[in-house]
Structures are given as structure tokens and as C-alpha cells.
């Protein structure tokens, strides 16, 4: 029997398929316009990559902002529950989870008994998230990956001061009009993002091993900034793609439910 988890975020749909005792496959599908379609597609490609084209999951759990729009799921559950379940499986020594996705920025800690101790979730502001970087890259009219890599060459990073993405857009436009180097501008954006994330993380007392989940965890520049600022080393998550941690937890919960 196979089980599936689908995490429908605002910029990407993620799916994970597992069976009774192993991880079978996953996929990440960035999308722009059609959330329902993205969820269906990512589930189909995940099943396909696991060689399971003809088998339907016994149970599918959905999570994320669009969890109720995942029409083929059997139930929905909050992403914190999924992340919590995933780290229990990956490494029980993990007791702090930082999750930064397209628009999410949250951190929670659990005690040794697995009870959630603190939970800080930024609900209404995308500063410090994937979309914040996307918007800034859009203003600079460059693909994100390209400007991120180029920003490493920055000689004189331009400080960013606006706390709000809309105001930061205007600020970046002003800097461009002043003739500042795009690499310097984006280096300032990345640094600001890391500082903003750090200030949210510091609201919580870090416990045990620290997991960094979500798409932002794959951004090695931000990751390095954070490890330095917070003086931590993030858990390797057993090699799991951090962007699918919620979907993995959802799949595990789907399996738990059926047993």
C-alpha cells in the first residue's frame, strides 16, 4: 500500500509518496496560475517517478495554503503538524524547526516529549520569504538564480532599509536609477532577508538540533548567513529535499491514519 502527501503552497506544489517502510519519490512543481492543476500534476509526476502510475495511494493528506483545493486528498492538516511529524521520523534529536517557503516564515520548538513549546508564525507579511526575493529579482529584471549568484561578486552591498516589500520595491527602483550595481543591490537584499529571518528566529529559544525546511533552505546564501548569525549548524535531514518536508510529514500522517 502506498500513501501520499501533497503540500500546495502559493508558489509551488510538492508531493511525496511512501509505502509501509520506505520513501518512494517526490516532486516539486513551481507554478503561477492554477493551484488545483499544479497539485494534480505534481501528484501524477511523483507517482510516475516512483513507478506507481497505476497504483492509487490508500490515503492522501494535503497541507499548505491551498490544502482545501487539493481535490484528490482524503483529508487536510496544518503544515506545522506535518513538519513536526517529519522531523520525528528523520531525527528525533531535532527539536527546532524553521520553515520558510514562498510566503511562510515560521519557527516552532518541541520538548523531549514531542509537545510544541513555542510557535512563531509571521502570517501577514512576506518580508524574508521566497516571494520577497522573487519580487526584488523582478524589479531588477533578472532571473532569481542568476542575480543570487551574481550578488556574490558584490564589492559594496547597498543596504536595504524598507521593512515592507512594496516600499522595498520602490527603494530598489531608486537605487537602480541612481546607477548602483545590481549585484550590490541584491547583496543588500539577501543580507536584509537573512537579518529579518534571524530576528524572527530569535523570538524563540532554540532547542536541540535545528531543522531548516521549506524552499528558502535550498538558498545557500541565506543558509550560510543564518548559520553564521545564529551560530548553529542545520541538520542534514538525511539528505531529504527541505522543500518537501511538509509533504513528507503529510504522507507519514496519511500512513499513520490508515494503520
Amino acid at each position: 500500500m502506498i500513501y501520499a502527501g501533497c503540500d500546495l503552497g502559493i508558489v509551488a506544489a510538492k508531493a511525496v509518496v511512501i509505502d509501509e517502510d520506505s520513501f518512494l519519490g517526490f516532486d516539486v512543481l513551481p507554478y503561477k496560475n492554477l493551484p488545483r492543476h499544479a497539485a494534480e500534476t505534481v501528484m501524477a509526476t511523483t507517482l510516475s517517478s516512483a513507478g506507481m502510475d497505476d497504483e492509487q495511494p490508500a490515503f492522501c493528506m494535503s497541507t499548505g495554503y491551498g490544502r482545501r483545493a487539493v481535490e484528490f486528498s482524503d483529508d487536510t492538516i496544518l503544515d506545522v503538524a506535518c513538519l513536526h511529524r517529519a522531523v520525528k521520523e528523520i531525527n528525533p534529536a531535532i527539536r527546532t524547526v524553521i520553515d520558510i517557503g514562498g510566503h511562510t516564515l515560521q519557527i516552532f520548538t518541541v520538548n523531549k516529549k514531542g509537545c510544541i513549546m513555542e510557535n512563531v508564525s509571521i502570517q501577514r507579511c512576506i518580508t524574508g520569504t521566497g516571494l520577497f526575493l522573487d519580487v526584488m529579482a523582478r524589479v531588477l529584471e533578472m532571473p532569481l538564480e542568476e542575480i543570487l549568484a551574481a550578488s556574490l561578486e558584490a564589492k559594496d552591498p547597498t543596504p536595504l532599509t524598507s521593512q515592507c516589500v512594496v516600499q522595498a520595491e520602490s527603494e530598489v527602483v531608486s537605487r537602480v536609477n541612481e546607477g548602483k550595481d545590481r549585484r550590490d543591490i541584491f547583496a543588500g537584499v539577501v543580507s536584509f532577508t537573512a537579518i529579518r529571518i534571524s530576528s524572527v528566529i530569535r523570538k524563540v529559544k532554540l532547542r536541540g538540533e535545528v531543522a531548516f525546511a521549506g524552499g528558502m533552505a535550498k538558498n545557500k546564501y541565506v543558509r550560510r548567513h543564518l548559520e553564521r548569525n545564529l551560530e548553529v549548524k542545520f541538520d542534514s535531514l538525511g539528505g531529504l529535499d527541505p522543500q518537501v518536508m511538509s509533504a513528507y510529514g503529510a504522507a507519514l500522517l496519511a500512513r499513520d491514519r490508515e494503520k
Binding site: I10, H103, R124
Partner: peptide, 17 residues
């Protein structure tokens, strides 16, 4: 949502849905 950028996305997705 309330953030302008998220509203931009949510509105676009709603129109297309």
C-alpha cells in the same frame, strides 16, 4: 491575505479559476 503581493497572486489565481 492582506499583503499586496499575495493579493496580486490570489486575485490572479481566482480569475483563472
Amino acid at each position: 491575505f492582506i499583503c499586496s503581493i499575495l493579493i496580486e497572486i490570489e486575485v490572479r489565481q481566482m480569475i483563472l479559476e
